[in-house]
Design a protein around this nucleic acid. Sequence first.
DNA 1: GTCTATATGTAGATAGAC
DNA 2: GTCTATCTACATATAGAC
Lengths: 190, 190
Amino acid sequence: MGNKGESNRQLIVKAADQLFYTRGYHQTSFRDISDATGIPRGNFYYYFKTKDDILNAVVEARVEVYGDILKDCEQKSTDPLQRLLCFSNMLSKFEDNLIVAGCPIGTLCSELAKYEADLQEVSRAVFSLMRDWLVKQFAALNYSDADNKAMDMMARMQGITVMASAFGDRDFIHRSLKELQDWINSLRLN
Amino acid sequence: MGNKGESNRQLIVKAADQLFYTRGYHQTSFRDISDATGIPRGNFYYYFKTKDDILNAVVEARVEVYGDILKDCEQKSTDPLQRLLCFSNMLSKFEDNLIVAGCPIGTLCSELAKYEADLQEVSRAVFSLMRDWLVKQFAALNYSDADNKAMDMMARMQGITVMASAFGDRDFIHRSLKELQDWINSLRLN
DNA sequence: GTCTATATGTAGATAGAC
DNA sequence: GTCTATCTACATATAGAC
């Protein structure tokens, strides 16, 4: 009794994840996902009742993936400041994708914020995950306004990706990441 | 010979502008625009050949509108620093809209960046307008890296709107705007 | 579980009467 | 210039054979 079904389900989620990112949620059709996976359109409804259900599964998968990234940053150092630097390095690590399609999380939230409150709440989950994690790091640095710092850092990174994507400007990412990391390093003394 | 035709055209552009903002470009149908204006769908093709042409007209209209905002900031003060503060005040002025639908320019660029290079280039026009204007102000403050400063300021504002919209957080806008304006004021001495 | 065929709605776009 | 009727394509979703 294998996991063939589960495997197909995972294939769909994986392809949808990528397509929702590179084309947007509404601009991704079942046909697109079918083409990417080789799985017939009609088959999707065996695994998911609606397209929105696929979105839910994609967000769950992303929570998993970004949770792993955060865990990785935790394992590489016990120093909160080093962990923040590790987090900020996502800008460099995913640079190629950020330039062409922006931040997967930010652009999804922006798309779904537009008069689709239910879906937007779903998409916000990954942001919340990161925010909570960042709060922990800033709290460990003895900042009483840890949540403010977390929001500030996320806003900075989002702003960088929006502008870098709008102008296709890799150098802007490099320079901004450096400045962001200077800012992080300046938080040591508290 | 009246301007009745022109007036209808303007009605379409105005409604499309609003809908592209609150619902997104792809999520806005001719039916939506028809419902908003009372103008029959088939009639649109008398004024525009394609939906993309409507987008072009909308972006042109926005260039006009934001150009006026920039002119207004110029007229209110000859001091570049005051002008920058005036520009930043858009975050407060448009707060209600930013919370529910993000930045009209940023979200359009993000949406159209997704594998639609032609459309993205069109949408970038308003960003370019602002960027050039900001460069002038920073240059007037004797910054040799005026373009970097302009990009930094726009990135900050974009990041603020993305996070405020994602979390529906008005207070974050208020606090961030204050910090942004502190930053602007700190640029006096150069 | 997997697939084809199809239902139903709506998208952008066109034709042609008035 | 304005409007209705309609075309073609494709969207999500369903039915039912295998």
